[in-house]
Design a protein around this nucleic acid. Structure first.
Length: 598
DNA sequence: TCTATATCACCC
DNA sequence: AAACGGGTGATATAGA
């Protein structure tokens, strides 16, 4: 298996405009056949007027690109069918060098540098990219320049491929390439948002902040504009004779936990705590929203060391605090569903370790309570309702084990004694000895062989800087990422409108009339993906459906959503132009809103 | 005045 | 020595 199985190998690069949040607009494309050197240069008019690419994309051809989801996004923009076989050299470079942190990064320039190949200057690259991004027509000279630049990237691919070919793990590389097609499709779809409310929040963001600060800070005087000043707070503490914990660095400890603990003895700091919390949550300026009111951003496939997607937290709607997900809203006649695997990492650990008791716990439907039963901590007949506290503790313990948490951290998390944490961890070890052996064996293998890999070949190189807890967690997280990718492939290939992947979940969309059927199909895709990764072991999934005109709401964020929206309502009653679509309401003093959620 | 670092907060 | 895996990003202060 290798390049020789293909009759044609096309190296392809596009230049395109990608206005914030909008779909890519191809500017030009260069494609070169690897062996013959036949080169095709197309400008956007040729791209957009053709219903297929000017080269073969069938079974016997290989499509090669660097970060293929971008090229495939241009395919979608042109209305072209996607290539059968995709080899993405970015992904393969990431896989090959994962954990080694190559000097020049994982971009095309970095990869060339890694192999000692010459590349064009980063500065020149920047200026060309700007030229491509520029709106408006390009002169013939500019066209020529851009096509030359585009071709230089294709030439770089032609130099990179022979360097990388020998180490490309072929069938598996194509599986990763296949995901790039799904990624392009999801980036193309995006997540529908309530642009009206988003605009209102954005427009009034400063006012909301200022009003909140004005009301609360009157009693403190620790803000300067919208900035919380450490030394002013120190002054206030001194005046009020409140001793405050400090960090090792000597600075005041200002995290929410400290505030919470201190509020127990000094309740007068509570309003400040709530204010800081609320202000810290208001981040929506950089959310990337297209002219069609859909949230779109780069999924950044294979960015993290475990091969997870890593979209920008500020641009992606699932990045910021979960109350902002209230902005997710299906268009008229449409429904959406958030479908996530139930206890995915626990299930992966159970399946891959072969620990029968752990598998039984997973299959019971409530792994946490079953763990408690297996450990003899609760009676056989215990339920979520009868033993909520016990269940919560065993749940926390399970999650802690997956992250390699020690007894002291677990004790903190539990709000219980280190002795209790030690006991829980011991119970886990006693109940699931096969899992613990398997986990230790993985870490040993990593240390001995200097690498660790997932079932479909995503690998990490182990260095002396590698953290044993990271290595222990790698099998769960990396195989979870494999599973998600497979599910995205299956779902998008079946024509399901996948809006976004969220690590252990898919957000999908469909007509309300058929949403239940689409959900079933997606769940089937996710089940299939779990069986494929876990050698037949099937993971369940949970579904949350929301239909127009309702909005998506994460229960954890619903209070916050209400609070912010009532402030907005309050502002709009003072100035109706702020939010024209809203019915008039009685004026609610801002302070009462804050008190309400203290 | 600009940049680097530390700290904090959030996501799965 | 630290003791929670994988991340991104905002903010405030210190330092150049």
């Amino acid at each position: 298996m290798g390049l020789d199985q293909y009759s044609q190998i096309w190296l392809v690069d596009f230049e395109f405009r990608a206005p914030e949040g909008d779909r890519p607009q191809p500017v030009c494309m260069v494609a070169r056949e690897y062996r013959t050197g036949q080169t095709i240069r197309w400008w956007s008019d040729e791209i957009m007027s053709s219903d297929r690419p000017p080269f073969d994309i069938g079974q016997n051809s290989l499509f090669v690109a660097y970060y293929a989801s971008a090229e495939l996004g241009c395919f979608l923009a042109a209305g072209w069918p996607c290539p059968e076989n995709v080899l993405d050299l970015f992904t393969e470079f990431r896989c090959r060098t994962n954990g080694l942190y190559p000097q020049g990064g994982a971009g095309l320039v970095g990869a060339l540098q890694y192999f000692g190949l010459p590349s064009i200057e980063t500065a020149q690259k920047e200026s060309m990219r700007e030229l491509a991004m520029r709106s408006g027509p390009h002169s013939p000279v500019e066209r020529h320049q851009l096509l030359d630049y585009c071709e230089s990237d294709v030439a770089a691919l032609a130099k990179l491929l022979p360097q990388m070919e020998r180490d490309v793990d072929f069938p598996r590389a194509l599986l990763r390439g296949r995901y790039m097609k799904a990624a392009a499709r999801m980036e193309w779809n995006g997540v529908p948002l309530d642009s009206h409310t988003l605009a209102a929040l954005r427009d009034n963001w400063q006012d909301i902040q200022e009003q909140l600060i004005e009301q609360v800070d009157a009693g403190f005087g620790v803000y300067e504009g919208r900035t919380f000043k450490h030394d002013k707070f120190a002054e206030w503490l001194q005046q009020n004779h409140i001793p405050w914990p400090r960090l090792d660095s000597g600075k005041l400890a200002l995290d929410d936990r400290t505030f919470r603990d201190m509020a127990k003895c000094y309740p007068q700091v509570s309003p400040l705590r709530e204010l800081r919390h609320t202000l810290g949550e208001l981040r929506l300026e950089k959310l990337s929203v297209g002219t069609d009111a859909r949230n779109r951003c780069l999924i950044s496939a294979f960015r993290s060391t475990t091969s997870r997607n890593q979209p920008s937290n500020s641009r992606f709607i699932f990045g910021p605090s979960c109350w902002l997900r209230g902005l997710i809203k299906p268009a008229e006649g449409q429904s959406m569903a958030y479908i996530d695997w139930s206890q995915q990492e626990f299930g992966i650990a159970a399946a891959l370790s072969g620990d029968q008791k752990m598998q039984a716990a997973y299959l019971s439907g409530d792994p946490y309570l079953t763990f408690a039963k297996q450990a003899g901590a609760v009676p056989e007949g215990a339920t979520k309702q009868s033993h909520p506290r016990q269940r919560e503790q065993f749940k926390t313990c399970v999650l802690a084990v997956q992250y390699g948490m020690g007894e002291y951290s677990l004790a903190q998390k539990l709000g219980d004694s280190p002795a209790r944490a030690r006991e829980l961890l011991k119970l886990h070890r006693q109940t699931y000895p096969v899992y613990w052996q398997w986990s230790q064996a993985a870490v040993d293998h990593a240390m001995l062989h200097g690498q660790l890999h997932s079932v479909f070949g995503w690998q990490i190189h182990v260095t002396d800087r590698s953290n044993p807890r990271s290595l222990a967690n790698f099998p769960m997280q990396a195989n979870g990422a494999e599973m998600l990718r497979l599910a995205c492939c299956y779902a998008t290939e079946r024509g399901i409108q996948v809006c976004a992947p969220v690590h252990d979940a898919l957000l999908i969309e469909g007509p309300t009339a058929s949403i239940e059927k689409v959900v079933r199909e997606t769940q089937a895709a996710m089940s299939q993906a779990s069986r494929d990764v876990l050698d037949g072991f099937e993971l369940r999934s949970d579904v949350e459906i929301v239909s127009s005109p309702n909005r998506y709401m994460d229960p954890r964020g619903s209070e916050m959503w209400k609070t912010v929206l009532s402030i907005l309502t309050n502002l709009s009653s003072a100035n109706p132009r702020i939010w024209a679509g809203l019915p008039p309401r009685r004026c609610v003093p801002v302070l009462s809103i804050i008190n309400l959620f203290i």
